[in-house]
Amino acid sequence: MIRIATPDDIPVLHALVRELAAYEKALDEVVASEDQLAEALFGDRPAAYAHVATADDGSGEVIGFALWFLNFSTWRGVHGIYLEDLYVRPERRGGGHGKALLTELARICVERGYERLEWSVLDWNAPSIAFYESLGARPQDEWTVYRLTDGALASLGGGTP
């Protein structure tokens, strides 16, 4: 039901990323191409990793994914996993695929000695929040995410905004 993504999965992974963005009301923000995703996951220096959930009917149809990368905690002195995206197609939710994807990432953390599995969730996404909390995850209420992109990033980095 859960397996490591392969280069053959790039088209469906890209489609799932777009579906997730549409669900999050941000489809117009997706500019990544299939080629960029392939390079990030399978290039000479992979920057990210992905697992896919497949249908239980034996078809092998990819119905969800988890895309993640390593982070590092200076306080704990070890790596952790940052889950960038977790998505299961709406018509396939409730079948345990999301939990299975998170279970696999938790297993990797335990096996490798990583001490954190972290992700962000939109504050309006009540079904996901309830799901995560049912697994024992807790929000980090004292922290606020900041982001530099586009012109602000270029300006600070010395480029042309």
Rank of each mutant, 00 (worst) to 15 (best):
Val110Leu: 15
Gly77Ser: 06
Phe131Val: 06
Arg45Trp: 15
Arg107Ser: 15
Ser59Tyr: 04
Leu117Asp: 05
Leu27Asp: 10
Ala15Gly: 10
Leu86Ser: 00
Trp124Asp: 06
Pro127Val: 14
Leu122Phe: 14
Val62Glu: 00
Phe72Ser: 02
Glu118Cys: 05
Ala53Tyr: 02
Ile63His: 00
Glu118Met: 11
Ala38Gln: 10
Leu105Ala: 03
Thr74Phe: 10
Asp150Val: 05
Glu24Val: 05
Glu34Asp: 09
Gly113Phe: 11
Arg89Lys: 14
Gly158Asn: 01
Tyr49Phe: 15
Ser59Thr: 10
Arg18Glu: 13
Glu34Ala: 11
Ser128Asn: 12
His97Met: 10
Tyr87Gln: 01
Val30Thr: 02
Leu105Arg: 05
Phe131Cys: 06
Ala47Gln: 15
Glu34Ser: 09
Ala100Gln: 06
Gly96His: 06
Tyr87Val: 02
Glu61Phe: 11
Ala53Phe: 02
Gly60Val: 12
Trp119Cys: 07
Asp150Arg: 04
Arg45Tyr: 15
Met1Ile: 06
Val62Asn: 02
Leu70Phe: 15
Ala137Val: 08
Gly64Asp: 08
Val145Arg: 15
Gln140Phe: 14
Gly94Thr: 04
Arg138His: 14
Pro127Gln: 15
Asp28Lys: 03
Leu122Val: 08
Asp9Lys: 01
Gly151Phe: 12
Val52Cys: 05
Arg18His: 15
Glu104Ile: 03
Tyr114Leu: 03
Ala50Trp: 01
Arg45Gln: 13
Leu27Thr: 09
His97Arg: 04
Ser120Val: 12
Phe65Val: 12
Gly77Cys: 06
Pro46Cys: 09
Tyr114Thr: 00
Ser128Cys: 12
Arg3Asn: 08
Ala32Val: 13
Tyr23Trp: 12
Ala126Lys: 14
Leu67Met: 11
Glu91Ala: 07
Ala126Met: 12
Ala40Leu: 09
Tyr146Trp: 11
Gly94Ile: 02
Pro90Thr: 07
Ala47Asn: 12
Ser120Ala: 15
Ala38Asp: 08
Asp9Leu: 02
Ile63Gly: 04
Ala126Arg: 15
Pro90Lys: 10
Arg138Trp: 14
Val52Gly: 00
Ala55Ser: 07
Thr54Glu: 15
Leu117Arg: 08
Ile81Asn: 00
Lys99Trp: 14
Tyr23Leu: 13
Glu24Arg: 06
Tyr87Pro: 01
Pro90Gln: 13
Leu37Ala: 06
Gly64Val: 07
Val31Gln: 12
Leu105Pro: 03
Trp119Gln: 08
Arg45Lys: 11
Arg112Glu: 13
Leu13Asp: 04
Met1Gly: 12
Leu105Lys: 04
Asp123Ala: 07
Leu13Glu: 02
Val30Ala: 11
Arg107Leu: 08
Gly43Ile: 03
Leu117His: 10
Ala152Gly: 03
Ile10Leu: 11
Thr6Trp: 10
Ala55Met: 01
Leu27Val: 14
His51Asp: 14
Trp124Lys: 05
Leu122Asp: 12
Asp44Trp: 08
Glu115Trp: 15
Asp141Cys: 05
Ala55Gly: 04
Pro7Cys: 05
Met1Leu: 12
